[in-house]
């Protein structure tokens, strides 16, 4: 190996990155050539200078934050049973928007389920975070002029997380998020479209009122309408819990705005 050949290999030589046979040849050259030996020394010195740089550690708060976010992400991931289905649902939604005439009758419920799945995957599903039902109601009124009823399910262990503005059937919709343990429950309130709400599902009567129940992608949904607003509950919680929440909401709503 001559000086020119060695110089081309100077950096991998110093970094110990040459192949065995090349390393031996380079070694042989360095032993003989004082000039190249000096180059090697210089490069090594420079490398040491860089290695002497202080090695900062990640701040403990950052570490804690990342661990918390990772855990949260894991919990949310566990709430979506069929991940592949989300993409399919999104594709369906797109087609539906472009071709409204082909809208399947239960599109609103599918839409709500897709939204629930989507929100369950994001870090902060609620735009406005509060455990106070009145505060969440005020937020909807001020933010979007929506008269939203937010029920308090805390006696049943269902905690209010907050609210978010969503869009369903091209209309502004209120989305109220609850959590029971690690299971999310979404309550959607969507204004009834001019052509009427097209809801389908199994008709269920609960405490004297009719609801439509439908299972979509492993989620249970309960829906009803009062003529002006469509209400939809989406969760992996059982139907009984959902119907009880629906009934509570209906009562709260009647109390607030009249039956």
């Amino acid at each position: 190996m001559n000086c020119i050949e060695f110089e081309a290999r100077l950096h991998p030589y110093v970094d110990g990155e040459l192949e065995m046979n090349e390393m031996a040849a380079a070694e042989g050259h360095v032993v003989q050539c004082a000039e190249c030996r000096a180059r090697v020394e210089r490069e090594r010195g420079f490398r040491q200078l860089l290695r002497r740089q202080p090695r900062e550690s990640a701040p403990p708060e950052l570490r804690a934050m990342i661990r918390a976010r990772v855990r949260r992400s894991a919990r949310l991931a566990a709430m979506r049973p069929v991940l592949v289905g989300t993409t399919a649902a999104a594709a369906l939604l797109l087609v539906v928007t472009v071709l409204p005439s082909l809208r399947p009758t239960s599109s609103l419920v599918s839409d709500l389920v897709s939204k629930h799945v989507t929100y369950a995957q994001i870090e902060q599903p609620a735009e406005f975070v509060s455990q106070d039902p009145r505060a969440v109601e005020t937020w909807f009124r001020q933010r979007a002029d929506l008269r939203v009823t937010v029920s308090d399910y805390s006696p049943s262990g269902i905690r209010l997380v907050g609210g978010r503005l969503a869009e369903a059937e091209e209309r502004k919709a209120a989305y109220v998020l609850y959590e029971k343990g690690h299971t999310l429950m979404s309550v959607f309130m969507v204004p009834v479209p001019a052509r009427g709400a097209d809801l389908s599902g199994t008709r269920v009567s609960y405490r004297g009122h009719d609801y439509l129940t439908l299972e979509r992608k492993g989620y249970n949904t309960v829906a009803w309408t009062d003529g002006k607003t469509v209400f939809g509950l989406v969760s992996m919680l059982g139907y009984e819990a959902l119907l009880e929440c629906a009934d509570r909401l209906r009562l709260d709503r009647a109390e607030r705005f009249g039956a």
Binding site: E56, S57, P59, V70
Partner: peptide, 15 residues
């Protein structure tokens, strides 16, 4: 598993 395999490299990532 993630914490033990990946988050141990947090300092390198941060720097």
């Amino acid at each position: 598993e993630f914490e033990e395999t990946a988050l141990v490299h947090l300092d390198t990532l941060y720097r």
